Amino acid sequence: MGFKLLSKLLVYLTASIMAIASPLAFSVDSSGEYPTVSEIPVGEVRLYQIADGVWSHIATQSFDGAVYPSNGLIVRDGDELLLIDTAWGAKNTAALLAEIEKQIGLPVTRAVSTHFHDDRVGGVDVLRAAGVATYASPSTRRLAEVEGNEIPTHSLEGLSSSGDAVRFGPVELFYPGAAHSTDNLIVYVPSASVLYGGCAIYELSRTSAGNVADADLAEWPTSIERIQQHYPEAQFVIPGHGLPGGLDLLKHTTNVVKAHTNRSVVE
């Protein structure tokens, strides 16, 4: 069995187990497998329904001669939608809004960016022009300005110390501490036991640490421990890039980060 097929099978099995364990909360999309990078042309966006009122959005972007996937989250909030992270750029984010209108038909009224990198804030200006209120932590807003990236308009308070959590509509926002970046936030959907790890969490097929220019490698494993301790009931975990899975993604990420750190020390 090929690795790609095995990865998709694991996603399907995880979703099936969740649907059985929580039949009222989960209505997993039966329309197909989780979209992969090879299936999404740059400039297009796919939506994948995880649970009743919960979707991931998947886009792709060219970077350094390669094409990478990027995940975000959409959560229903009454007759409105909360968006977590842009679709990595203005063109993708405009396509995301169009796809949401086509498939869901509810307005996106608020959006949260989970850290300051372009795959999370690139497209904020498109959201703002569409009347979406954009939010991020003060740290993310400051770092985005320093980096020359787009800056969300509103500040999220109460997320300055490791372990801080605040309720934001249908989700809980959690600051686990520094990891992929010093400002990275985690998003949890309690009604569906869905954990969105953003770039602080890796997919299972990833074996290298990737972009760690703004990471705190020493603190990252401790931050992941905080996530595990705060959300032990999480059933569906979405990484910032690639295929979702279960809580095993947290341990896998820790292993990859520690291996990278150990290699760096040896070198």
Rank of each mutant, 00 (worst) to 15 (best):
I104H: 04
S31R: 09
T60F: 15
R128H: 11
C199P: 01
E172F: 05
T134N: 02
S193P: 04
E101N: 12
A213G: 10
A51E: 09
A94V: 14
R128A: 12
Q49E: 11
R226D: 01
K251Y: 15
H154P: 05
P35M: 15
D79G: 11
G122N: 11
A111C: 07
T114A: 03
L96D: 00
G240N: 05
L156I: 10
L97F: 03
Q49T: 09
A133N: 10
D119M: 01
H252C: 01
P138Q: 08
K258H: 11
F116V: 05
A218D: 12
P244C: 04
T86C: 01
A213F: 09
D183R: 00
R46H: 09
G123T: 04
V67M: 15
A213D: 13
V11K: 06
V42W: 05
T140A: 05
S30K: 15
P221T: 12
K258S: 13
V124Y: 01
G89R: 03
V28W: 07
I151G: 04
G32L: 10
V67Y: 15
D64P: 06
G158I: 04
E33G: 12
A192R: 10
V237Y: 04
A25D: 12
E267D: 13
A144K: 04
G72R: 02
L83V: 09
R110N: 15
D52G: 10
A129Q: 12
Y202C: 05
A200Q: 01
L217H: 04
L5P: 13
I58H: 15
L106D: 07
Y135D: 03
E150D: 14
G131K: 11
A90P: 13
S22P: 11
A25E: 12
A259T: 09
S7E: 09
V189H: 06
L217I: 10
M18D: 12
Q103C: 08
L73T: 00
E44S: 10
A19R: 11
K102A: 12
S191E: 13
A130R: 13
P41D: 14
Y202S: 15
H115G: 00
I201S: 05
D52M: 09
H241Q: 04
L47K: 04
Y135Q: 00
I227E: 01
H117T: 00
L173V: 14
M18F: 12
T261N: 13
A192N: 07
T182C: 05
D248K: 10
A192W: 05
A133P: 14
V45L: 04
I238E: 00
A215D: 06
V126H: 07
A94H: 13
P170E: 07
L247A: 13
T14V: 05
H115F: 01
T261P: 11
W88L: 00
A21M: 11
G123H: 04
P35D: 15
S113L: 04
N184S: 03
H241K: 00
V112M: 07
A136K: 05
Q61I: 14
A19K: 15
G197L: 02
M18P: 07
P232M: 09
G169P: 06
L217E: 08
H117E: 00
V126G: 04
I224L: 06
L250D: 01
P176D: 01
K91M: 14
P244F: 10
Q49I: 11
N262F: 08
T86Q: 00
D52N: 10
F168A: 02
D248E: 14
N262Q: 12
E33L: 08
T93Q: 00
T153W: 12
L10W: 06
